[in-house]
Design a protein around this nucleic acid. Structure first.
Lengths: 206, 206, 206, 206
DNA sequence: AATGAATGAGCCTTCATTCAT
DNA sequence: GATGAATGAAGGCTCATTCAT
């Protein structure tokens, strides 16, 4: 029952923090939602901030970036797969990923002490994988500015399509990132990058 | 003197809301920073929420997106200019744009009633301008999915480079969006898009 | 009315802290007793600790050690007067002095950061005055160990008679430090010291 | 093992109560320090207050005042020995005596029902012994005010030198009651009293 | 005899808000 | 228009205590 309660508290906290943000979230609501006593947050986590950090850590731990099926594929195929996966994971409605995003938005707009370290853990694997792929495709070293710019372009686009709900709703209401649309977007992002890389890679000038 | 105080309150409120978010911002800090009495927020605006809404309204009203110098330029040139301008505005350290962004981040992560409408007002002009340009370059109608995808790709990239401070710090610490780097990034975004559009436009297949 | 409330809070706080000690005292009781809102402690003093320190400072400020009538008197007479005064001030029933003592007992048994500094301010004047007198009587310099020992003996005896209520009640119930008894005690303390000093002073050996 | 745990709890409680006072002491810290479960205090003692009372009872029971080596000595020598012993016991840094004192300070500043009785038990033996000695030296009956005054003077001085840490630190920082200093102080207290008694005893006037 | 999860009360503090002036 | 004292509600946290095991 103990672990169960702790688990319920974590789940409730994730929800409430995602919905209201750290400041607006109240310990009492979290406990109520978890059907637990107020004092248990102190008992299990220490205080509200420690709970928040635990939530962030858990959410990060559920790393969505370990895309399978990359082995043996060509770099071009790898790029397509990883971008498709990111979009897919990111747009799982109402699931952990949604909460994940909202929590990250909070962290982005009000970076806390641990934000950078958290991002380092979360993003680094995808980032490096993308750099390897782009490097392989372009023929440039992974440390080259061109490679980095391209990778950030990819990240930026994925983030935008996956996470800017309100913007999309305002500017392109039909885009709801359905499975079909997701496929189209992924192909657009990966495809345009591949076109660009092909055109600008040193090899292109042979 | 009355309008002056009201103005000071608004300015202070914009700052504090941007720095702390709605919930974490306190009426007292706003008043202190505005060098005004605590009771004046209620006196002038009714309550904290009303003040927040007024701040949002003002921030939106100060539309920073009207890029000058676009007249007469070729669509390609226009694209370059508008993207350069967006990046520039967005990276103005302590200016209105910075506050603007942080407020928007809040709105994004906790969309309120007015968020969509606010975005509609803020983003629409840039969005439509970009569509016109991309349409002109690609030869496709502005309503075409391809055009929209490209425009969102542009927005996504700009947003990413301009606003994901913590991500950048974690993944690419050297990228500080200095004037020089801004130029490089703008050229990268606009350039890659132009390459892509050239390659995929119907005209390319003639 | 403002200063009035602040004053009431301070008075109530002095009482409650003296009665219960810092830890056991509750902000709520202080406010209730002062007929004031709970939030006013924060408003006027910051927090409970700051209020406590203010109370200590006030209590100390009411310095009971400035004995009048010392001018022109012989050192021997001065000693008698100052000891009498200390006993008198210290035994004013139920007055500020009583609270003062109880607060000091708290400070002594659980010295806080400011205790030493507080004592420095409170005790130093009496201490130095006593050293001057003893020095004059004994013919030894005020820095001599003998002088210091004697002065501390005096302080210790006064403190004991004035403040060890429970001990007295247990061991010598009749000693209630009435005006008459006070006179006797003062004469005992000062008298015995004078005898001792006379016997041990260098001059005695001439 | 049961008694062992109970014992550990008592020892830990004595320490914590002495260090923090009743109110500021927490059941959890006591249990942690005793390496015991939180619930055991209630199990063994009923509640926190009952534990405190038990601690007081135990501390009182361990009477430290039975000075040895008094038999056969002259009254003058006896006085010197008992005062030396009191000072020594009182200044044992981490021993029972130190805890004892701090607990007593608490009881003094917030006399509880049992305080007087406790003191009666603790102090009475020393008190009566001192009266006997002073009576023998002075030639006055042990019930004489003069004897009582002298005995209280002795107690007051010992208490002051032994226990007023903060005062000493403020007024006479060099006085740390080292073994050497303790000897000096004991000689000062006993010596000055003997001088005084010799001078004022009826025998002196023969 | 001992554990550790769970409880409920209460504490200090903070906040937005109001009111008399 | 503006002030500053005052309010009441609520928030986070801590504590002694209990209960099932």
């Amino acid at each position: 029952m103990a672990d169960d309660t702790r688990e319920r508290l974590l789940r409730a906290a994730t929800e409430v923090f995602a919905e209201k943000g750290y400041a607006a979230a109240t310990v009492r609501e979290i406990c109520t939602r978890a059907d637990a006593n107020v004092a248990l947050i102190n008992y299990y986590f220490g205080d509200k901030l420690a709970l928040y950090e635990q939530v962030l850590r858990d959410v990060v731990a559920a790393d969505p970036a370990r895309a399978p099926g990359l082995l043996g594929a060509s770099p071009e195929e790898g790029l397509r797969v990883i971008i498709g996966t990111m979009l897919e994971k990111a747009s799982e409605a109402r699931g952990n990923s949604s909460l994940r995003y909202r929590l990250m938005m909070h962290e982005f707009s009000h970076p806390s002490e641990g934000t950078v370290r958290m991002l380092e853990i979360t993003m680094r694997p995808v980032y490096d994988k993308l750099r390897t792929l782009v490097s392989a495709i372009s023929g440039l070293p992974a440390t080259h500015d061109h490679v980095r710019l391209c990778v950030h372009s990819l990240l930026g686009q994925v983030a935008h399509f996956a996470h800017s709900g309100p913007i999309m709703e305002a500017l392109w209401p039909e885009m709801k990132l359905t499975a079909e649309q997701r496929k189209m977007v992924a192909e657009h992002i990966a495809g345009s990058m591949l076109v660009y890389l092909r055109e600008t890679s040193p090899a292109a000038h042979l």
